[in-house]
């Protein structure tokens, strides 16, 4: 993945078209959640070695936020989904 990402909307594109935000797993807590939950959301990271979901923004393409499901040790990419679709799928599970 380090080199190419296959955007679900635009096809295969080079890394320079994207900007990378970080872990996609943390979910923004409800406004009423406890301080501890908010702290964890903003500051604590699972940071696993291996399979990892990460937010990439296709800034030079469709401008959609994507969830890139990848292995951060081998750099293999398992899938790339639109972040909104990812949320919907997650909610459906």
């Amino acid at each position: 993945m380090a080199s190419l990402i296959t955007c679900p909307h635009c096809g295969t594109r080079p890394k320079e078209e994207f900007s990378i935000r970080g872990a996609a797993a943390p979910r923004r807590p409800s406004p009423a959640a406890r301080d501890e939950v908010w702290h964890r959301y903003v500051y604590v990271r699972d940071n696993p070695k291996g399979r990892y979901e990460e937010y990439w923004h296709h800034a030079a393409g469709c401008r959609r936020w994507l969830v890139v499901d990848r292995d951060n040790l081998t750099h293999e990419v398992f899938g790339v989904t639109d972040a909104t679709d990812h949320l919907t799928a997650e909610a459906g599970e």
């Binding site: 635009c10 096809g11 295969t12 594109r13 080079p14 078209e17 030079a60 393409g61 469709c62 401008r63």
Partner: peptide, 18 residues
Amino acid sequence: AVDLHPDVFAEGQSANMM
């Protein structure tokens, strides 16, 4: 960076790219 071979990026096709 996009492959512009006509089999890949055909006439009528368009996209945002760097």
